[in-house]
Amino acid sequence: MTDENAPGERAPDGRSTGERPSDDPLAWELLDSEVAYSCPGFDVRRERVRLPDGTETDFDYLAEPESVVVLPFTPDGDVVVIEEWRQPVRRVNRSLPVGGTEPDDGDLAAAARRELREETGHEADGVELLTSVEPANGVANSVLHFFVARGCTPTAEQQLDADESIRVDTTTFEALRDHVASREIRDARTTLGVLYYEAFGD
């Protein structure tokens, strides 16, 4: 599938075709941009670019909405986690609640609250941004925004998507950290969230 992104229109990063993102001599010039393949959740975008040596080539990457990752603490200090079937790796994945932002989200904090509520049925007294990262910026434009949620209590119903199979559990932060250290948890978003919070959280 392709779109009608003719030269001069805006690419996902806001650039017009024919425009460099910066004056850095390493920058590539964007010549054209189109969606090569689209499915629920992400697109594969194909861009025609000119390299610094003048060579023209195609570059494909995964394009998706920004996502939020929530580290939710209950009033007692436990962590709300989810267990979800992950088809690409054919196993149940133990992780923090994660989800993409949506157009109706007022801001990133609202997206974090919504994802927490939809995936776990918990609502938070407050949420605060922990950090934002680009987890695979050589092959995707993905951005993950990590939030700490506090005072999380089960006051709502889960609202799962049709392709979500999720079980909710709680654990201590220490146990979660130990599961990361022992490689029982292999989910990269959970690993990063736990270790970043341990290093830089309050």
Rank of each mutant, 00 (worst) to 15 (best):
R167A: 14
V89W: 10
G99Y: 03
R86P: 01
S165K: 01
V79E: 05
L108W: 01
R167E: 14
G121E: 08
T2C: 01
V180A: 05
P25Q: 07
C39K: 11
W28N: 08
F200S: 08
R114G: 12
Y37V: 08
R48M: 12
Y196N: 09
R46F: 00
A124T: 07
M1H: 03
S33W: 00
V89M: 11
V44M: 11
G138K: 11
P25S: 08
R183M: 12
E47H: 00
R10Q: 12
D13T: 12
L144Y: 10
V80A: 12
V79I: 14
A6I: 12
R90A: 15
T155Y: 01
T153W: 04
E66S: 04
R20E: 00
L129T: 10
L51G: 06
T190I: 10
A27F: 09
D125V: 05
P135F: 01
R150L: 04
L130C: 03
A181M: 07
R10F: 15
R113L: 02
V81R: 04
I185G: 07
T74R: 09
V70G: 03
A199D: 15
N5H: 02
T170F: 02
F73Y: 14
S33K: 00
R48K: 14
D178G: 15
G121V: 02
R114I: 11
V68C: 08
P97G: 13
I185M: 11
E64A: 14
C39D: 06
V70M: 09
R117N: 12
P65S: 04
V180K: 05
F73T: 10
D53C: 10
A6M: 11
P97V: 05
H179W: 14
G99E: 06
R183D: 15
D53Y: 05
A181H: 09
S67A: 14
S16H: 14
F146Q: 07
A110W: 00
